[in-house]
Write a protein that binds this DNA or RNA. Structure first.
Lengths: 228, 228
DNA sequence: ACATCCCTTTGACTGATGTCAAAGTCCTTT
DNA sequence: AAAGGACTTTGACATCAGTCAAAGGGATGT
């Protein structure tokens, strides 16, 4: 299990722990691999534990009876998911599927719970993690309810570009998945990208998008429903 | 501060604590009162601590530049809010206003944080609390993205009626506020209530609503966008 | 190179929901 | 009881975004 312990160091959930705790963690963590598209759990499944992504990407999403999906979160390496059911004892609140070939660490509920009980640092990290997610969800709710799709897209593009102040961004998900992340469908996303191009706010070719007018995008991103 | 300690017993966040801990909590908790409509904090304000509602009701919400509001949560007695900023150290992620005359307990960030560090039971309660909220938010995201307004309203009515299996429910918020909770506006809500009446699914008079056809409402509540 | 599949784009159309405006209702205050 | 104001309802309208259908593009494997 030495390889597992090695992975733990880079995970924010486990930052600031003592060496002894890494060993405890690596004793209870189980490595699992999933192929692209493979399901990790479904909404309502009994929550037997939670997961940390080591490699790949895991999609957490809700799906309607008619088949439309809303992505809640795309988890990359170092991020955790499924924590909620550890603490509420209820089933998983959403579906999880590997969006790429992925490796994850699984921590069984009971063992992890008792570990947390013993370690205030781990508990605080976990609370920070849950809080960040809560903040992100609040932002998503705000966007879905108070912004139109162009606003959500603009915000996302600025987010991608903002990290490095970069002018050119590469979408790291397919446009269909981006649509599901923004709470819309591929056709609508496609039309809005075309419109932003026409307005000279961006120049997109495939997954590459150059931001031509940051100010303009920011204006759209801040807009609520209906302009005055 | 004896009165404060007395309140603590009924709060799930603090359930299962020892007597000594109640005393610690009541030492750091400060009682505050707000009049109806009074603002408790604004989005972006520095998060100096978190709150527990003793009496009244506190509205947590986001507001768009055009003034439309989306209610994230209505906190009643025993519920807490503002926890997120305790753990992320960032500003509050939403606005909080007293929806009714309200009394709350305020726990300063640093003092509470150190208390949590010492008490695993308190930490676990807090994680459960955060998890429940996360689950609720995930449900709200699902509703906003994947259901139309009639679906959200039907679900809400069933939720109100479901508690006691009651046939007659009383709205405990104004219709304007209910609209903000469901992610729509009063006019749309009004029209959909009228439609449900016409369809003989409910019989509403003012804030009183009798559920005539539970099955029918359930069908609408489960529907995603667009019926087949 | 070719065929195939899947993702993306475009067009025509529909429907749900927001906007604006005005009438109606209820409750509180004087 | 009357008056005022806030909340609610209704109507006419605009528009965003989803549906359905089909064409276009790009990647992969044979």
């Amino acid at each position: 299990m030495a390889d597992v312990a090695g992975h733990l160091a880079g995970i924010s959930l486990f930052s600031g722990l003592l060496r002894a705790q890494y060993e405890s963690l690596s004793r209870i963590g189980v490595k699992r691999s999933f192929r692209k598209g493979e399901r990790i759990f479904s909404e309502g499944d009994e929550g037997t534990g939670f997961y940390v992504v080591l490699g790949g990407r895991v999609k957490i999403f809700k799906i309607s009876t008619e088949g439309k999906e809303q992505i809640l979160h795309l988890c990359g390496p170092g991020e955790s998911f499924g924590e909620v059911s550890v603490f509420t004892g209820q089933g998983f609140p959403a579906d999880a599927v590997a969006a790429l070939p992925s490796t994850v660490l699984f921590f069984p509920r009971v063992a992890f719970s008792s570990l947390i009980r013993q370690d205030p640092a781990l508990a605080l990290n976990m609370m920070a993690q849950l809080s960040m997610r809560l903040r992100q969800f609040a932002g998503l709710i705000e966007d879905l309810s108070l912004k139109e799709v162009p606003g959500r897209l603009a915000k996302y593009l600025l987010y991608l570009g903002g990290r490095d102040g970069n002018e050119t961004v590469d979408l790291d998900v397919s446009k269909g998945q981006l649509a599901a992340l923004l709470g819309t469908i591929p056709e609508t996303l496609s039309r809005i990208l075309a419109k932003l191009n026409r307005q000279e706010l961006i120049r997109s070719r495939g997954a590459q998008i150059r931001i031509l007018d940051r100010r303009g995008l920011e204006a759209i991103a801040l807009e609520g429903k209906r302009l005055p």
